[in-house]
């Protein structure tokens, strides 16, 4: 950090105007519009996951008399070939989707932090081996691996699917964290901490991790997006238990009952839109985090200096705000 002019003046004993005490901006990420919108939508989905199954107007499994009807006032999203209410199925499915997404995100992030930070901080063969391990997992295509593991397992509950996805998708986070740790390790403040005799664990937990928060958060959100899509996919191709409702299960039944050929668009459009909006919300949160980490992305508008047209005999002077 450069020494500010205020410090210099103070050091010189000049009568500097007393600067306002710098206030640490807590929750700065909430002031970012993208993050805010994303968090609001995500909050709505979490509420759906908690209360959705309770407020569903019908039992999602119950067969009705109205077979495969388009949306009506009684059935907002229409019905299936058995007369099941699709609106209730979407509501009931939210819980599984959010649960698996969060579980896989937590497992993968924990692994990524352990493997990424230790491989970045420990500059020995152990660190290199961990880095090689994460590179291997990064290149092996995750989705086919998840499909194989999930279909070999004798029972597939939501928890098991979340664990399988989490255990196979930590590599990207680990790689990013390793790169960031490598760059932090050489900073002066870490050297200072070592010199004062802080233990390795204290340095990792109290000096490094707080500075990695943004990277960890963005890795977590990214993994949740991936986990939700993978879970939906598993359900869609019929690897997951088709009696447990999630949005992929709805699409599985729609596909296997030829909803498309019969023009039953209401059967697969709501579930897909629900996935897409959830994914968009998570991406928005990640863009917000990106902008906090990389200030150059923050300015949404056109930067003034960039649009300066160069002419002969005219020397543009770029203002400070362009730096």
């Amino acid at each position: 950090m450069a020494i500010s002019t205020v410090d210099l003046q103070a050091a010189a004993g000049a009568a500097a105007p007393t600067p306002k005490p710098a206030r640490r901006q807590k929750f700065r990420f909430i002031t970012n519009t993208k993050t805010l919108i994303g968090l609001i939508i995500l909050g709505f989905y979490v509420l759906l996951a908690i209360f959705g199954p309770m407020i569903a107007p019908y039992d999602p499994d119950a067969r009705g008399d109205v077979l495969q009807s388009p949306p009506t006032s009684a059935h907002w999203f229409g019905t299936t070939h058995l007369g099941q209410d699709i609106f209730s199925q979407v509501l009931a499915g939210a819980r599984g989707v959010v649960y698996v997404g969060l579980l896989a995100g937590l497992v993968a992030t924990a692994l990524a932090v352990i493997i990424g930070v230790s491989s970045g901080y420990l500059a020995n063969t152990g660190g290199e081996a961990l880095s090689a391990l994460s590179n291997v997992f990064l290149v092996i295509p995750a989705l086919p691996l998840i499909i194989i593991v999930a279909s070999i397992l004798p029972t597939v509950s939501n928890t098991i699917i979340g664990l399988v996805i989490g255990l196979t998708s930590w590599a990207w986070g680990a790689r990013v964290l390793r790169a960031q740790t490598l760059s932090l390790r050489g900073r002066d403040y870490v050297d200072a901490a070592k010199a004062t005799g802080e233990s390795t664990w204290r340095i990792i937990f109290f000096e490094l991790l707080p500075n990695l928060t943004a990277v960890i958060a963005s890795g977590f959100v990214g993994t949740v997006i991936f986990a939700v899509l993978s879970e939906i996919t598993l359900a869609f191709i019929g690897v997951a238990d088709p009696t447990v409702w999630n949005w992929g299960t709805i699409l599985f039944w729609a596909q296997s009952q030829q909803a498309l050929a019969q023009g039953a668009w209401w059967w697969f459009v709501p579930a897909g839109l629900a996935i897409a909006v959830l994914g968009t919300a998570l991406s928005l949160i990640n863009f917000g985090i990106d902008e906090i980490v990389n200030p150059r992305l923050r300015n949404a508008g056109r930067i003034k200096g960039k649009s300066v047209r160069m002419r002969i005999g005219f020397t543009p002077v770029l203002g400070k705000e362009n730096r």
Partner: peptide, 18 residues
């Protein structure tokens, strides 16, 4: 693009067919 990248490939395929 944010929205499109959040859509599962297979669902997008279904919509294309429709």
């Amino acid at each position: 693009t944010t929205f499109i990248s959040s859509v599962p490939y297979f669902w997008f395929g279904l919509i294309m067919i429709e």
